[in-house]
Amino acid sequence: MTALTTNAPGFKQIAVEDFRLTEEPFYLPIRDEVELFETAYADSVPVLLKGPTGAGKTRFVEYMSWRLHNKGGHGGHEEGVPLITVACHEDLTASDLVGRYLLEGDETRWIDGPVTRAVKNGAICYLDEVVEARKDTTVLIHPLTDYRRLLPVEKRGELLEAADGFLLVMSYNPGYQSAIKDLKHSTRQRFIAIEFDYPPRDQEAIIIERESLVDAATAMELAKLAEKVRNLKEHGLGEGVSTRLLVYAGKLIHGGISRRRACQVSIVWALTDDREVQRSIEEVVASIFDD
């Protein structure tokens, strides 16, 4: 299938398997994650990205899909490996992933699910927030993750062998540590795990500056604020502030919103509904920014 463009202006529609990044996404490697991923990809070792929300997991996958050039000559991609992202949720079923029959006119028609498409096209299949999916669903991917690299399509009585370049990547936020939302061991032990944490202050500042176009000093202050707010994790906050939120704050500041106000809407209120915690964070903001 090829990309199809509709005639609606400013509106682009493409098949998922054709999606690839045409521009290099900004990603600042913090440690050896790029190298790890590349090596894993080369050996078709599935990857689990662990880390809190907004720490750059998705951006990392995008970056890697851009960076990796398909070596299998499967269509000769110039712009990297196709990336198929599935946002997992609790009602996600096996057929949502694999595919299903739909009625069309007099007959039924088979529609491939995203995983099937990734398998066929040698794409990176990225299951975002995989713990959200039902456990019986996640089991489905087991045969894909070991040496077999097979996807059983039960309804059609088929087995699909993954094309070269296919890689299963999942992301997972251990912050939710609750008995219900944890990965089964049989699942998690099929992946190598790359830990993501919030970047150190200096690097986070660079990211903020680059992404939000705010000045370097403010970016640095924002990163400092982030560090302070993250100290409150488990002491009133379930999660620390994500780099993404900091970038939002930076964007608002760059757009002319006062710094305190920008932090209030993009950080304080986004993080918690608890009045007391909000107040505490606002005071930290007020201590760092004088306006």
Partner: peptide, 8 residues
């Protein structure tokens, strides 16, 4: 909470 945030 403020002190916790600042000092870690």
């Amino acid at each position: 909470m403020y002190a916790k945030a600042l000092s870690g």
